[in-house]
């Protein structure tokens, strides 16, 4: 038997490697972001001496609220669309016969494993003025010759849904697979309609998976950068683009830091909400 002192030594021994690595390369860099937001920029693209609030004040520039609003709006719509598609699909895969289930799951996972850039590029080709989507729309008289499909917010939205959808399907499927579908039958037996049984029995039953799915879509969407960069235009920029622009184009690192710090706080908000909801559910369980 291990005695207590040995045990805690052993624990430190196996905890330290990853702990130290992530502390140096994750915690400290994050803290630096928050620190540099209060530093002035120097003219050579570096970080100046002393402390200042100027960077934060300059975020009040009328350009920003529009970008921040667009970022939140696009992320929320993406999340809603992804969940709306993932719910019936996760449900279907979970109820499919075992052979089909494996195949469907594989088909869902493959896009997740393939290159992010390539999947975005594929859409760029499709939405291109000479691309098939455009030609099909013109043929169906749904679009005019002159309309641009690329470089607008709708294109960003479409490609965000395309790339983030697997992240919503997988957790919902995982929760639905563990769900006891006899509960739905019981609800139907007790007189609930299809929709009511789905809403009042199935949805609460997979709540945890649903929350995970929301986080897995919403958070990357809030921080999205390449999709607006490649298929969006100047009118569909998101916060991520501004961070990159301030870093690479203007070389104003304090400014990029201030934006990143804001984004960090923004992605923490939904996380905390979900954690609190899960915490409350756990307490309820304990009372019971």
């Amino acid at each position: 038997m291990m005695n207590p002192r040995n045990k805690s030594f052993g624990e430190w021994l196996v905890t330290l490697p990853s702990f130290v690595w992530l502390f140096i390369l994750f915690v400290i860099p994050t803290l630096i972001v928050f620190t540099i937001a209060f530093k002035p920029a120097d003219p050579w693209g570096g970080i100046g001496e002393g402390w200042t609030l100027d960077t934060l004040i300059s975020l009040g520039n009328p350009n920003y609220p529009a970008i921040i609003w667009r970022t939140i709006w696009l992320s929320l719509v993406t999340t809603v669309v992804c969940i709306a598609l993932a719910l019936p699909m996760g449900y279907y895969i979970a109820r499919a016969p075992a052979r089909w289930r494996r195949l469907l799951l594989l088909l869902t996972v493959i896009p997740f494993w393939t290159s992010f850039l390539i999947r975005i590029f594929a859409w760029k080709v499709l939405l291109h003025p000479d691309g098939y989507v455009k030609r099909a729309l013109v043929f169906l008289r749904l679009s005019e010759e002159g309309t641009m499909l690329l470089y607008r917010s709708e294109a960003v939205l479409l490609v965000m849904v395309y790339t983030l959808l697997p992240f919503a399907i997988l957790p919902i499927f995982a929760a639905a697979e563990k769900f006891d579908f006899r509960l739905v039958e019981a609800a139907r037996d007790l007189g609930a309609g299809k929709l009511r049984a789905f809403r009042q029995v199935f949805i609460p039953g997979i709540q945890r998976g649903l929350l995970t799915a929301v986080l897995m879509v919403l958070i990357p969407a809030l921080g999205m950068y390449i999709i607006p960069d490649l298929v969006g235009g100047p009118r569909s920029e998101m916060v991520g683009n501004k961070i990159a622009q301030r870093t690479f184009v203007d070389r104003n690192l304090p400014h990029a830091s201030a934006l990143s710090a804001g984004l960090t706080l923004a992605v923490m908000a939904p996380m905390l909400v979900v954690l609190m909801m899960q915490g409350r559910r756990r307490e309820e369980h304990e009372v019971r």
């Binding site: 994750f26 860099p29 994050t30 972001v33 921080g223 999205m224 950068y225 991520g240 992605v267």
Partner: peptide
């Protein structure tokens, strides 16, 4: 869960 752009910049 942190967006990759935040890891990148930090």
């Amino acid at each position: 869960v942190v967006p990759d752009i935040l890891m990148g910049i930090s």
